[in-house]
């Protein structure tokens, strides 16, 4: 047997099945919403045949970019989470736990404060990206020399995340008026995503996903402890930094488009590992596809659900997708952990 991946057929089936599911979700996104459209109208709007201009705007300018951003960000978050879990040698690692998502939110809030003070207004997506990268870097630096000990990075990451959250809250105290516009970064939302958001995201997908998948060999190696990695010919610390930096960049890119969506980066790799095992060559592609499906499905639920929130005057539609992933993801993860061996 010349291939190293155990049960390669299963990986192919899962990836192809996942891509098919993603395509189905994409279609559903175009049709479902406050104004449901029959497939004929969706098709007409897409192909540009003479149709109502309103349908065209609805499908092509509102629903399509939102659906694409959801799929792309889900894949990036899951890929990042899968890489992080392997490299930190901690199955509970995820973009949020190394500070990236909260850092992104802080970046946006800080940029608003800067904008108010100076009149400069950096784009929120750029601020989110910078905030996420900065928080990831801070986690790496503070973790210091013992960063490869399992748990160390995640522990420091949790502290950095808490600090980011505290700073965000402080900044928001003085700017209650902007709370509404900031909320989408805090909770994670795909509402009102446009082609601009997709334009900022697709280069990351194009570059990040192949690089992420190609790094599977290194990711496998980094699951071992540092002396072993070194004795197998790789400088452990530098290699860990390289691959971790990749994971942070992927997560920061995703979060800059969606805000701090919870659980996708944790849950998708977990499920993928149960399906195909710990070998990164199988795990990474399956996790990425699962992440895309997960976030997209959650968003479908989010914007087609109407809920009565306690204290709200009217019913709320268009929930932020982060609320759905948190509400659903928490219990699912608990169930998975209870069923796991350890």
């Amino acid at each position: 047997m010349v291939t190293g991946v155990a049960r390669p057929g299963r990986v192919v089936v899962l990836v192809v099945g996942g891509v098919a599911a993603a395509a189905a979700l994409l279609t559903a996104h175009l049709a479902v919403g406050r104004l449901p459209l029959p497939p004929d109208d969706v098709w007409a709007a897409l192909t540009g045949s003479p149709t109502s201009a309103f349908h065209r705007v609805l499908v092509v300018d509102l629903r399509l970019p939102r659906a694409l951003v959801g799929l792309g960000a889900g894949a990036l978050l899951a890929l990042s989470g899968a890489v992080l879990q392997a490299v930190t040698r901690n199955p509970l690692a995820e973009p949020g736990l190394v500070g990236v998502t909260t850092g992104a939110a802080l970046g946006v809030v800080a940029s608003l404060a800067v904008a108010a003070g100076t009149g400069l207004s950096p784009a929120p997506t750029v601020a989110a990206l910078l905030g996420g990268l900065a928080a990831g870097a801070a986690t790496w630096l503070v973790a210091g020399r013992h960063r490869s000990a399992p748990g160390r990075l995640v522990l420091v990451g949790a502290l950095v995340a808490a600090l980011c959250t505290a700073l965000t809250s402080l900044l928001l105290l003085g700017r209650r008026d902007s709370l509404g516009s900031v909320l989408r970064w805090l909770v994670g939302s795909l509402n009102a995503r446009t082609w601009d958001d997709w334009a900022a995201l697709w280069p990351w997908l194009l570059a990040g996903v192949p690089v992420g998948l190609l790094s599977a060999g290194l990711v496998n190696l980094l699951q071992l402890d540092d002396p072993l990695v070194t004795s197998l010919g790789r400088p452990a610390d530098r290699t860990r930094l390289l691959v971790l930096g990749l994971a942070v960049a992927l997560a920061a890119a995703a979060v800059s488009a969606t805000g701090a969506v919870a659980f996708v980066g944790l849950l998708a790799p977990h499920v993928a590992r149960r399906l195909v095992g710990a070998d990164a060559r199988a795990l990474l592609p399956v996790a990425a596809v699962l992440g895309a499906v997960l976030l997209s499905a959650a968003d479908l639920v989010a914007y087609s659900t109407t809920v009565s929130l306690p204290g709200a005057a009217s019913q709320v539609t268009g929930l932020p997708v982060g609320a759905v992933t948190a509400v659903v993801g928490g219990p699912v993860l608990l169930a998975l952990l209870r069923r796991s061996r350890r």
Binding site: G4, A6, A86, R89, P150, N220, L221, Q223, L224, D225, P227, L228, L232, R273, G277, A278, D279, R341, R342
Partner: peptide
């Protein structure tokens, strides 16, 4: 030496 419990023997040896 430390490695993840979910890794299979073949995958470990492959390293």
């Amino acid at each position: 030496p430390q490695g993840p419990g979910g890794l299979r023997v073949r995958e470990l040896v492959e390293q």
